[in-house]
Every structure is written in C-alpha cells, then in structure tokens.
Write a protein that binds this DNA or RNA. Structure first.
Length: 426
RNA sequence: GGAGAGGUGGCCGAGUGGCCUAAGGCGGCAUCCUGCUAAGGUGCUGGGGGCCAAAAGCCCCUCGUGGGUUCGAAUCCCACCCUCUCCGCCA
C-alpha cells in the first residue's frame, strides 16, 4: 500500500513512478484517493471539534450531578452535539473505507534500478553453467516422467482435474527429497529459521501480501470458513509479525518454509502450460526476509544468491533476469527471476522470483520495527523469493539428467535424500 | 459441536453509567541521594490520527473486534473472535 502522506506531498514523483508500469488505471485511482483524502481531513476537523465539545460538556454535567445541581439544560444541548458527531462519524467511516479500497488497488512504485518498458525490456544480468544441449533423443519431462512411471498426470486429472499432478514411486520421493534438501540447505548455509505454517489463511493475510482484493480469482477460497488456500508460503511468512512492532536489534529476520501452493491460474490453460510448467497445486520452499529499509537493497542481492545457490547445488544452468517496470508484479518494487534451462522442452523455466517490496506489504500488514530503543516505530521492508518452486525444477532436472537409455541420474546432493543414484523405468 | 469462565497499558492487576483525564504494583527511562553496591526519593511511560513546512503545542481515537442504548460506556445490550476448564466427537 502506498503511503498516503507521501502521495500527498510528493504527488508528481509518485505519479511518475507508477506511470513506469504502464497501467492506465492508476491515474484515475490516484485522483480519487487524493480527493477523498481532502474530504476526509475536512470531516475530521468537524467531528473532532464536536467531540472536544462533548468531552468538555460531559465533564460539566458530571460536576453538576455530583453537586446535586440541575443539569437538564446542558443535557438538552448535548443532544444536538451528539447528532452532529454521529453524522460526521458516518461520513468519516465511509470516506476511510473508500480511501482504503482505492489504496488497496494501487500497485507499488518500481525501484529506480528497474528498467523502463515491458517484458521485452527485461534484462539478463548474469548466467551460470553450460545449458545442456538440446538433442532429438531428449524428451520433455512429461513424456519422460510418464515412461519412468514417476509422473501420472492422467490419474492426477482423474482425481482433481487438469493441473493437479500426481507423482509415484521415486517421483513422489523426489518431491520429499527436494523439499528436505532445500530446507536443510537454507537453514544450514544461509541461517534462515525454518517455519511450518498453516496452509489456510484469513482474508486479512492475503490482503497484507497484496494477493487480495485485486487477485481474488487467482486463489482458492473456502467459503464455509472464509479461509484462503495459500498461493505461496510468502503469505503466512510475511504476515508472521503482522501488527507487531519488532525491536530493531532483532532485524533482519530470515524465514524459510515449505508449503504446498494453490493457484487457480484462471484462463492460463494452453500451449505454454504442458506437463509441470503451470499447475494448480505445487510445492515450494520460500524465503522471506524482514529488513531495515537501509539494508533491503543489499538483502535482495543476497536473497537472490541464496536462491541461485540451490540451482548450482543441483547443477542446473540458469540465468538471472531483472524484470522491467511493465513486467513487475503488483506489489513488487524490484524483482529478479531465476530461469533454469530445460533441454527437453527447450525452454528457460522460471523456478524462482526474488522480490523486494519496500514498505508496500509492511503498510498493508502493519509490520513495523523500532529503529532504536525509545524511537518511533517505522515500517520495515519485506522481501521474498522462491528457493525453489518444485515442479519446474523437477522438469528441468529430469530433462537435464536424462540418459539415452531413458534413465535419469540423481544429482549428488539429492542422493542421500532419495536413497538412490538413478531413476529407472519399471 | 454443547456448557461454563475469562479477554483492561510492556507485564501483573483494580475497576457494575459521570471525581476513569484507568487505581496500585512490576518493569523500563531520566534524575536526586549515595565512598561503591544495595535500598530509597522524585518525575516520566504504549499505539493511531488531525491542525502545522516542520518542531513545539493543542485536540481526537484506542480497555479483544464490530454494532447498539445513553447527554455521557472499560462498565449496560447484541453479534462475532480468541484463550482456559469440563463434556461430546475425532487422526
């Protein structure tokens, strides 16, 4: 959520920053917010003047009653005062709700580092590893997985519809192995605290991270209890300290969690979504950091390196892409995508998205810290990144490590978890 | 799911319509006393918002949340949330 006060004082700068996203609806929303805010402040002046009067007269009534004196004329006067308060309070409530509603629909301002333009302006900032050469004998992971008997998309679809993959045998075990490996890695190598959060969360939490209200149709909702299935562990992790004021000396906070992720992906079915590339349910290990504002730029670089480290450990060639303003997610100030090369389907697959939110989520979720003992609380900065999302990682692993005989070699770090060095057909 | 008890400031805890502008205590900060320490004295104490360029200052809101009654609500009424105890159900 944008800072209303900053918007008021630096309107031109905010407008210019948001314009880089190329979303034409933004200016109208800004106009509306500013107009409502002016109204709101005028109404506050009125209602508070009346409330001050009510407080003062109430005190006099109390004094008179205590002294056993007649207070009826004052009480009569107060009826009118109360009527004014009620009227202005109603208007204030309405205005505040309208401002909040509009503010929640405004995206974050892009970081100055972010290139102008749309997806075509995304910039590859570095690469690692030699992409495995495509060859005619290499199969895409959906064929390979089916032949090895470890991926059964048909039966997944029978149970739940398309986009609900089902893994069997070593395929199932591979999910568990990757989750355990990644969690252990980040805890041991990068000092993140492991968290196992709830998988259903309140609407308020979805709003805090920016998934609601605008993207309600992307998420699964359980109406009987008004809970939402997490689309990413970012939601519970970022909201872990919602409403709290953290002592500055306890920052940064680094959290890592595995959760399944549930996404409706409405309207996404099609060519680009075969196999494990875009599914409704998948597993992911997610990193979340709460940082002091002055440390957050560096934290994004570090967080991205932490996600990259997993690709390296698994021996997957990847590239790091800095997203342009027009391709940025709604709440993101700056994002690096990690894409691994999949030689079977001959594509770069996005396995991680590492983002800096600045104070955008912190304002929505009321995440604050105290810079020094006794100092005023301030909003902190939030970051998150996948490290990694499993399905595309699995796709790339299968495609990269497949042999001509149709078996798949297991990368060394996963062997102890998988209790196997090779996956063979049955 | 049923019955009961409860939710007050950083913490404990008093408070059944107006001297609550929330007692008292603990903790914390400042300061004084003090050879040092301990003990003690005095003062201060959270969050949000408005006026203001800002500060100072003044004002408003905040006793689980949201409504309501009333001239006036921590206090009365309604709904909801959470915690605890017992019962039921259950992996």
């Amino acid at each position: 959520m944008l800072d209303l006060r900053r918007l008021r004082r630096e309107e031109a700068a905010v407008r210019a920053a948001l314009a880089r996203r190329g979303d034409p609806s933004v200016d109208g929303l800004l106009d509306r917010v500013l107009r409502l805010d002016a109204d709101r402040r005028a109404v506050i002046q009125h209602v508070e003047a009346w409330k001050a009067k009510r407080n003062e007269v109430s005190r006099r009534v109390a004094d008179l009653k205590r002294a056993g004196a007649e207070a009826e004329p004052l009480i009569e006067e107060m009826r009118e005062v109360s009527a004014h308060i009620e009227e202005y309070d109603d208007r204030l409530r309405t205005l505040e709700r309208e401002i909040e509603d509009a503010l929640l629909l405004l995206p974050n301002t892009p970081h100055p580092d972010v290139p102008a333009g749309g997806a075509e302006a995304n910039r590859v900032v570095r690469t690692w590893g030699e992409p495995v050469e495509a060859a005619s004998w290499r199969k895409p992971h959906w064929e390979l997985g089916a032949e090895l008997g470890i991926l059964d998309l048909e039966r997944g679809a029978k149970l739940s519809g398309s986009g609900f993959p089902l893994f069997r045998g070593l395929g199932a075990r591979l999910q568990r192995a990757l989750i355990a490996f990644m969690l252990d890695w980040h805890v041991r190598e990068h000092a993140y605290e492991e968290v196992y959060p709830p998988f259903l969360v309140k609407q308020e939490m979805m709003r805090g991270t920016g998934h609601l209200p605008k993207f309600a149709s992307d998420a699964y909702h359980v109406p009987s209890d008004d809970l939402w299935l997490v689309p990413t562990a970012e939601v519970p992790l970022t909201n872990l300290h919602a409403g709290e004021i953290l002592p500055g000396e306890t920052l940064p906070r680094r959290y890592v969690a595995y959760t399944p992720c549930f996404r409706r992906e409405a309207g996404a079915a099609g060519r680009e979504t075969r196999g494990l590339i875009r599914v409704h349910q998948f597993d992911k290990v997610e990193l979340v950091r709460l940082e002091r504002p002055e440390a957050s730029d560096a934290a994004l670089e570090e967080l991205t390196r932490h996600a990259e480290a997993v690709c390296r450990a698994l021996g997957l060639a990847y590239r790091v892409v800095l997203l342009a303003a027009g391709d940025l997610g709604f709440g993101n100030a700056k994002t690096y995508d990690l894409e691994v090369w999949a030689p079977g389907c001959e594509r770069w697959l996005e396995v991680s998205s590492c983002s800096l939110y600045g104070d955008y989520q912190a304002r929505r979720a009321h995440l604050r810290y105290r810079p020094a003992p006794g100092a005023k609380p301030e909003h902190l900065h939030t970051l998150n990144g996948s490290a990694l999302a499993l399905p595309r990682t699995v796709g790339a692993l299968l495609e990269c490590y497949q042999a001509r005989d149709g078996s798949v070699e297991v990368p060394p770090p996963l062997q102890p978890y998988l209790q196997s060095e090779r996956i063979r057909g049955v």
